[in-house]
Design a protein around this nucleic acid. Structure first.
Lengths: 331, 331
DNA sequence: TTGAAAGCGGTACCAG
DNA sequence: CTGGTACCGCTTTCAA
């Protein structure tokens, strides 16, 4: 089923059918209705591949995330998608599950699709990949990784500053044994986030600390907490790399009959909606996912009124949100 | 950047480049390396649109869901995606947000992309759309809606049976005032799920009931609970259409200082991972999302060894999972 | 207002 | 083992 069949049935040329379908150029009204009728009767659906091949222009924006299961990523996607949709774009998303090989595949796929723009919200980026993207000339926006370039923009969170806020707050509450729950990342021997934590605690001489890393997720958080509690470290506070993992930590604590915050304080990061729905509600750091999503689209969309904001860097400072999961240190 | 450029640089024809890139046909080794070198140097990425236009066969499977934010849907996607990936397929997913217009768009998009198969996991389906899909000849699998046809398979959950189990259990616990928290659906005046609840409670003469519907999500659940608690109904148990909304219910109950299960019992549906991580852990009904995801792929994949399982209907019976959110009725 | 035809970037068949 | 070339289905001049 293709244009030609429709054209034949409507007794016009394929060019005319194309005009009607795309609402371009002049078409006599009677012809138009005839074409539309044929389309209807034949249940014709244009082949999008052919369309973008012929048309050149693509109104698709790609987005690659590490873990769609973590609401943090989904929220960004959703916000971007809303703007995209209302501007006549569609989004296609890919999930890497923190796996470098999946990332490579996804990037190739996106380039192969000739997306109009690509958002890369992952932490497992390596520099070869970045080069590949730079060369592709596709407008790119990275989250939390790399540096601005010609076609590359950057949205960053001042993660260090956020963790600092959490650690300082806990320190004020006289917590002296803090554990950090991190998730694996392929960024290098030590992840940026772990480094941020180390630095933050280093500023308080009496604070002892430890780190446990696991997969990003409910079980990962739980497992990390279990590991920490099984050691002799005996933390008075657990600082989590994100809210999602914190939920897992909360569960393990409950399971071990440790009260939060009376026995152990817990902090999250991101301020996903769940952080407010869990019990106890999480003290966390707010990251404006909605704003990030909008920026993503804004940055990528080809000339939406104003100039594309390419090659920029935007830094976001996390905002401390005090809720119920933190309190004075026990002893 | 296209085949021709690569061909020229490698001093071969486009046909040969194509052979190399697709690993088909005989190619002298020296030629192959020459081509590969050119590809590398040029940072050439084949245009996927052209490829599927020319090739005919598409190794893409589409999936449309109502609400990717609800982990229920994500789990199905993830399982399907795993199988798809390992069989050399890629998945593209679309989210409708329970909106009929988004559904229409998504379906058109998928047909336009000429996907090899399409999974439709939504509740807002109307019969015109179903017809459109039937005509498309694309292998389809519906979840929870419609009936098997030529190219259409069906995976259903015996939702009524599941709700019955929950209601019966609560009835045994002497609950006599049950509220049902439902989410909106465009299926008709009364959703199938509400009907299932009505029927289930009708079997117990002394049980009084009420229903509150809201959007599928944390806030929706909370809002529905608020509505119920604001009325004079004074429920001893709240049966939720799914776990995700139940989390919202749990929060509102906590906010209003009602203890679960001492003051009010709560049940969920789906058995998403969060149902085990929240506090108290939810009594719920297990739906095997993983198995569903695998069936989805199995049903859609063109001839993966055995015959495609088209036109089948599979019914799943939910399994009762007892946890902490239910207990004897108060008075 | 409409049609003919030249691509868009590949694939695959047919010769050589 | 390699090249030439006819499509794939649609968009877009260019003429009529």
């Amino acid at each position: 089923m293709n244009l030609e069949v429709v054209a034949k049935r409507a007794k016009v040329s394929t060019a005319t059918v194309s005009r009607v379908l795309n609402n371009v150029g002049p078409v006599k009204n009677s012809t138009r209705t005839r074409v539309l009728k044929a389309v209807e009767e034949l249940k014709y659906h244009p082949n999008l591949h052919a369309r973008s091949l012929a048309g050149g222009q693509n109104r698709t924006i790609g987005m690659i995330v590490s873990n769609m299961e973590n609401p943090f990523f989904f929220d960004i996607y959703k916000a971007a998608e809303r703007d995209a949709r209302s501007n006549g774009f569609e989004m296609v998303i890919a999930n890497t599950d923190y796996r470098a090989d999946h990332l490579v595949n996804s990037i190739r796929l996106m380039i192969g699709r000739r997306v109009a723009g690509l958002a890369v919200i992952v932490s497992e980026m390596d520099s070869d990949l970045i080069a590949e993207l730079t060369d592709s000339k596709i407008p790119i926006v990275f989250y939390d990784v790399g540096t601005p370039r010609q076609n590359i923009s950057n949205i960053k969170v001042d993660y260090a500053r956020g963790i600092e806020k959490a650690v300082d707050y806990l320190n004020d509450l006289r917590h002296r044994r803090m554990a950090f729950v991190s998730h694996h990342s392929r960024l290098g021997p030590i992840s940026v986030r772990e480094k941020a934590f180390r630095k933050a605690v280093a500023r308080h001489a009496q604070v002892k600390w430890t780190i446990a890393a696991n997969v990003d997720g409910l079980e990962g958080g739980r497992e990390a907490a279990r590991e920490i509690l099984a050691s002799s470290f005996d933390p008075t506070a657990i600082v989590c790399v994100n809210d999602f993992m914190a939920l897992g930590v909360l569960r393990e604590l409950r399971e071990q009959k440790l009260r939060v915050p009376q026995d152990v304080s817990v902090t999250g990061f991101d301020n996903i909606k769940l952080s407010e729905y869990c019990s106890p509600a999480l003290t966390t750091l707010h990251i404006p996912r909605d704003a990030i999503g909008r920026m993503v689209f804004q940055t990528l969309a080809p000339e939406t009124g104003k100039q594309r904001q390419a090659g920029r860097e935007i830094v976001i400072e996390p905002e401390f949100v005090l809720r119920e999961s933190t309190g004075p240190a026990k002893e």
